[in-house]
Design a binder for these strands. Structure first.
Lengths: 265, 265
DNA sequence: AAGAGACTTTCATTCTATGAAAGCATTTGG
DNA sequence: CCAAATGCTTTCATAGAATGAAAGTCTCTT
């Protein structure tokens, strides 16, 4: 089985290659921008931010609106209701999500901790599935939350073994997205990543204070783009206690990889 | 405040007018088709179903994939993980969703029944928010579910007062989407709609057996595109009991309309 | 192993997407 | 209340993007 990722421009574009389907790419930029700015946007804002002319932006918005991907109130645009059925379709049909449910359930039951599945998207990761453990996490993190790759066990493990050039990009993107302070450097990132030869990542108080976490990547062909994590509030676990779950986590990752591999389409 | 809906082609297109942004529109068609067929689709399937050439379809898929809207495993395509952050953005920022929460909560508390908010999308409606009542509904219906306009109180009330020509389209779309039997006619639809002058719709065993429901439309300028419903399983309510909640429902609709009207952007 | 089917690339042509500029509308400031 | 400014929308000529035929490549089937 091969998971193809074209991986060219999910994040902020630089302008290197004049890629295909310009109007469609631009429409997706507008759509992404509407999410990034989590408040209604005016036409002129979007045109400026996305670097395109007013008429073009307007035309794009109109089409997206026709399909419910964007909704308009007065002069402001925002994400529209059509994304809900789409998300439902994803959650119900993607083998990553459906296959992970029982696996996460089992590892959560075995360890008593919260088990989460993340998938990489551009230079971020998003929470795709979660099964709560005995000790609830203080913060709520609904499905679909965008999180940095640079912070937190589940993010860092996805970067293990990546070449410096790529880490550099990731570091810059994390700054651009506001996940890291403006001075964040490649060296700082590498200092946090797991040692070479280590197949898990650990984090304490990294992304959220009072939260410990270990993560393992799902091994598909090529660079990993999914990871599963065990998470616990500090008051319910120690570093050692959490790391004791790593063998289970490892098994869960292997089981999930196997499930995905065996899926027939 | 004005809610603009361009309302041209959210559903299957006929081919009347040579609308703008062809490539973008076609991309949205592909995206919609991937949701409709809730199973992985091959390139050739999509090309055939959407009526476009293989190269074009492939190019569209590649761009959508770059942005995570589509994911590919082997030779099959499906909705991708990027829809999750988008859905989150919608649920957290759309005033319809955020304003409705307290309103639904109140009406659910007052009546003891499940309160739901639907919005119209093309020729269907989708569940956008729900607060459960005392008697849980037997079926689970997650957010984002696509439901027909022709069946169920919350659907029918959105069609009250619509001209026959529009009802005709709706009836045909319901058949095309598999919501209604192939013989479903305009006359059958009109027989179920609320009498002129009635501001609520009632349904019993219509969309789901064992479920009673009343609904009221949210009154924004122009034709309504949202409705709120009270729903209960038969064993927990009678028709009269449910209809006793109509005044509360009416008040809730008015309050929500007011909240939406007052939103400043 | 050979053939059939499906996917991908190339390329010349068409027509779509584009932005400048003008025309409206709406908001702001006097 | 009017004037000026700002923001939105439409029009239109042009560039170049999007398109599908056809050839090329890969993959699965028999």
């Amino acid at each position: 089985m091969t998971v193809t990722s074209t991986q060219s421009g999910a994040a902020a574009e630089d302008g290197a290659k004049p890629s295909n389907m310009r109007s469609l790419s631009r429409a997706m930029e507008v759509f992404a921008e509407l999410q990034r700015a989590d408040r209604p946007q005016r036409l002129s804002d979007l045109a400026r931010t996305c670097g395109m002319s007013l008429p073009t932006t307007l035309r794009i918005l109109r089409v997206l609106q026709d399909f419910g991907m964007v909704s308009q109130i007065d002069k402001t645009y925002r994400i529209g209701p059509a994304v809900l059925p789409a998300a439902r379709s994803y959650l119900e049909n993607d083998p990553l999500v459906t296959s992970s449910r029982p696996v996460l359930q089992q590892v959560a039951a075995q360890t008593g901790m919260t088990a989460s599945l993340y998938t990489r998207l551009g230079f971020e990761r998003i929470l795709v599935a979660r099964v709560d453990g005995d000790a609830p996490l203080r913060y709520d993190m609904p499905l679909g939350k965008r999180l940095p790759l640079t912070v937190g066990a589940a993010g860092k493990i996805l970067l293990a073994g990546a070449p410096d050039s790529h880490l550099q990009e990731v570091a810059q993107a994390a700054v651009a997205a506001g996940h890291e302070p403006p001075t964040f450097s490649l060296a700082e990132l590498k200092a946090r990543l797991p040692e070479p030869g280590t197949d898990y990542a650990y984090s304490a108080d990294e992304r959220a204070t009072g939260v410990l976490s270990v993560a393992i990547a799902i091994n598909r062909s090529g660079l990993p783009s999914e990871s599963i994590a065990l998470t616990s509030p500090v008051e319910a676990a120690t570093e050692d206690g959490l790391k004791a779950g790593i063998p289970e986590l490892r098994r869960a990752a292997a089981r999930l990889a196997e499930l995905l591999e065996g899926t027939v389409y």
